[in-house]
Design a protein around this nucleic acid. Structure first.
Lengths: 228, 228
DNA sequence: TCAAAAGTGTTCTGCATACACCCATGT
DNA sequence: ACATGGGTGTATGCAGAACACTTTTGA
């Protein structure tokens, strides 16, 4: 730390953006338009600017790419293997975030030429060490989806209990019993029963619920812990 | 990423070293011998060298300071607020580690003039943003101590069930019922009953146990999950 | 004989699990 | 009328929580 000669590394953020579309957990990837790894899919990211905090930087990347702010953003892990970037020593701080796919439009001012939602089940080989980064972020998502009601954020404002269950099944890759799932959700008392129903479905229409975020915040303060 | 002009940041590792001494959970801090924050207590750390991986770097710091390798090492979070270091943009990747206090000696070749174990209950104001770093690492320790048998690593090879209980109580800041605690530990079947007992204690001598690490590894592979 | 910690079982309660049938709607 | 998913209750087992007395040793 004695001289300026130590200041010769670069630091970026990479942001694994998760979304959900009634079937599958998805991740938003960009196709690289330049070397290295040209034309390969990659996790969106950028170098951290000089006067920008880490989280600010992630939010900028996300906003540039999607026009959206994240519903949820969490730092996961920092990667910095010696050879991970051909141009020099680049550390990358990985985050994951959640957005609603239905809100998403590829943003015109984006730095990415092409961006696409990929099912998390079938990712090919990504640029750099991005497969490792993805795996770490996926694991972090799974962990916090079990202990925080962030899953709700991926659904439309009003949703049915079956949709909620499908979402958890997609993320956790595990089937749940319908009655037990509903029992657990109900016992938490975090849903508001709108008195609306699905329309024009060719079966008995399901009730629509909203997530009661205020109540969750209050319960949390009193030591309530969410668990699925 | 177009030119070398982006390579002007610095990256360090900070390592929160936890130990336990029959009463209290402790953390090893060093007293800074230079500006900034001269004479304040700080979490040991160092800049990452050019040809060194992140984890390698943490291990070097730990070895230089204590002469020991860590029994456990885990990356926690990266800090990089714009103003956190007066000399420039310095990111720090924080780790926590566990060592046995009884094995520890201040290493002669150490870069630290003074190092001392502090009870985690009474830390004063630390250098830089080290109070924030400490808090994050403490939380990470608590989380993994509940789900991995890393607590065992902090005790002598042979220990009594009461010592084990005290350790968990110190780390988790929570009292346990003696019978229920023993029941749970026994039901996991991870202890080897040495047929030895404490000596020259002025009360009924307690049985000594060893941790059965091999068995734990096997059980883990079969899906066993440790939980306290 | 006293002080100090070791050691030991049972009861109760609540939560997770397993499980099968009727209901409302569109076609 | 049929196909499709929506919606509901009960019985069982297991694990966590509460709880008090006897034992062994050194001083």
């Amino acid at each position: 730390m004695d001289s300026k000669t130590n200041f010769n590394y670069s630091v970026s953020v990479d942001c694994v953006i998760f979304g959900y579309d009634t079937v599958d957990l998805k991740v938003l990837l960009i196709k690289r338009g330049e070397q290295p790894y040209i034309n390969q899919w990659a996790i969106p990211g950028d170098l951290i600017h000089a006067n920008e905090g880490i989280q600010e930087s992630v939010q900028r990347v996300l906003k540039d790419l999607t026009g959206l702010s994240s519903l949820y953003l969490e730092q996961v892990k920092t990667f910095g293997d010696v050879g991970r970037h051909p141009l020099g020593r680049v550390f990358t701080i990985s985050y994951y975030s959640l957005i609603k796919i239905s809100d998403y439009k590829l943003h015109p001012s984006s730095f990415a030429k092409e961006a696409k939602w990929h099912s998390v089940k079938r990712l090919g080989e990504l640029a750099f060490d991005h497969n490792k980064i993805f795996a770490a972020c996926k694991e972090a998502l799974v962990n916090s989806v079990k202990t925080k009601p962030i899953g709700f954020e991926l659904l439309p404002k009003k949703f049915t209990l079956s949709k909620l269950q499908s979402l958890y099944e997609a993320i956790l890759q595990e089937k749940f019993d319908k009655r037990n799932f509903r029992k657990k959700i109900n016992s938490m008392g975090l849903l508001i029963d709108t008195d609306e129903f699905q329309k024009s479905v060719s079966h008995r229409p399901a009730k629509l619920y909203k997530f009661n975020k205020e109540k969750y915040e209050k319960l949390k303060e009193r030591g309530f812990s969410f668990e699925i």
